[in-house]
Design a protein around this nucleic acid. Structure first.
Lengths: 184, 184
DNA sequence: AATTTATGTCAGCCATATTGACGTATCTTG
DNA sequence: CAAGATACGTCAATATGGCTGACATAAATT
C-alpha cells in the first residue's frame, strides 16, 4: 500500500462521458486542500527515509517491519501481518532478509512454543533510530510554527483519521491504555 | 511511492555504512507517536479509495493521475511527472489506459504544439469526485472533534511538512498566490 | 487421536516502479 | 536555415513488493 492515493473532485459535466457513477450531490464541499496536503506531506515524509534505506539495500517494506518490531518488541508474526496488512508470503521475503542480515532476531514463545517473537538487534534499532530521527526532524520543524497546543490538535486529527473497527495489536496499544504521551 | 515508510531516530554520520549499530545520541526525543499516527492515518485514508478503484480495474497510480489532471486541468505531461515523481515510462502505461478508456483527453498546446495538455472527461471527473467524497467524509469526521480553528492548525502542520525547495507546478499553485481557501 | 493454529515455504502472477535507448515533432538559437 | 534542445512516446529489460494457492511441520487444543 503506502502509496499515495487521494482524489479530486468537482468537475462540471460538460464533456462526453458515461456517467461512471451515481451523480452524487457533491460538488463544492470536498476537502481538496487537505486531500492534497496529505498527499504531499506523506510523500515527503516517507521520502526522508527512502534515501537512507537505499544505502542499506532496503526498501520501504523493510522499514515498516523494522519500525514495528523495534517499537513493539516481542511482536508475533501474526501481529505484524495485521498491522502491515500484507500476506504471510510477502512478509516472509522481507523478514527472512532482515533475520539473515542480523537486524532482527526471533525467540520461541514461552507460553506458546509455536510463536516466533520478533526483536530488533542493536543493529536493527540503530537503523530504525536513524530513520526516525530524520522524520522527527521534519515533524519538529512543522510543529515549531504552530500555536501552543497545536501538536495536540494534530495528534487528535490523526487519531481520528484512523479506523477503529477491528484494531490490530499495535493500534490497541496506541489507543488503549498505554497512550504513550510524548513531550509537549 | 506512496507507500508508507517512516522511520526512527538518531544516528549521525558516525561511520559511513558499516557501523550500523552506532548508539547515536537520540533515544527519547523521537516523535514516535506522530510517526506512527501518520502511518495509520495515511493507510486508512488511501484505503478508502482502494476499494472503489478495484471496481474500475484501476490502481492507485490511476487515481493519482486522475486526481491531478482533474484538479489542474491542462496540466502538461512533464508537470505530472514532477508531481508524481515517477518516470515517463511508468506514467506512460497508466496514462494510455486512462486515455483509451475515456477518462482523460489530450489537447495539443496552443503556444507550444509539442505539449499534450491533459484534461479529465466528465467520466473521469465523476470518478475522481466519488473517491474524493469518501476521503472527504473521513476528513470531516476527523475534523469534527477538533477545537475551533483546529482545521487551520492541521493545514498549517501539513503544509509545513512539505518540502519547499524546488516545488513542482502544483505545489506552486498551492503555496503560491492561489491559496485556494476552502471553507472553514 | 484428531483437529486447529502459528509459522514457513515453494511456485507463479500482477502492478508499478526503474534505467537505457531511440524516434519524432516542434521550438529555439546561432 | 541548419543545428540543437525540448516534449513526448515507446520498446525492452529488470526490480520490488504486493497477491493466490498449495503444502509441510510443530505445537496447542479438543
Amino acid at each position: 500500500m503506502a502509496d499515495i492515493n487521494f482524489s479530486t473532485a468537482a468537475a462540471q459535466p460538460d464533456s462526453p462521458g458515461t456517467d461512471v457513477s451515481a451523480p452524487g450531490p457533491r460538488t463544492g464541499d470536498l476537502r481538496w486542500d487537505i486531500i492534497e496536503l496529505l498527499f504531499f506531506a506523506y510523500r515527503d515524509f516517507v521520502g526522508d527515509a527512502d534515501q537512507e534505506l537505499e544505502a542499506f539495500g532496503f526498501g520501504r517494506a523493510h522499514h515498516r517491519v523494522m519500525h514495528f518490531v523495534t517499537r513493539y518488541p516481542g511482536l508475533k508474526v501474526a501481529d505484524l501481518l495485521d498491522v502491515l496488512r500484507i500476506t504471510k508470503q510477502s512478509l516472509g521475503r522481507v523478514l527472512k532478509q532482515l533475520l539473515d542480515e542480523g537486524y532482527i532476531l526471533q525467540k520461541t514463545g514461552s507460553n506458546d512454543r509455536r510463536q516466533r517473537l520478533l526483536y530488533a538487534t542493536a543493529k536493527g534499532e540503530a537503523l530504525v533510530a536513524k530513520l526516525a530521527g530524520l522524520q522527527t526532524d521534519r515533524i519538529n520543524r512543522a510543529v515549531a510554527g504552530l500555536d501552543p497546543g497545536g501538536v495536540e490538535t494534530v495528534r487528535a486529527f490523526l487519531r481520528a483519521m484512523i479506523d477503529r473497527d477491528d484494531p490490530d495489536k499495535v493500534l490497541e496499544t496506541i489507543f488503549g491504555g498505554a497512550a504513550k504521551k510524548t513531550r509537549e
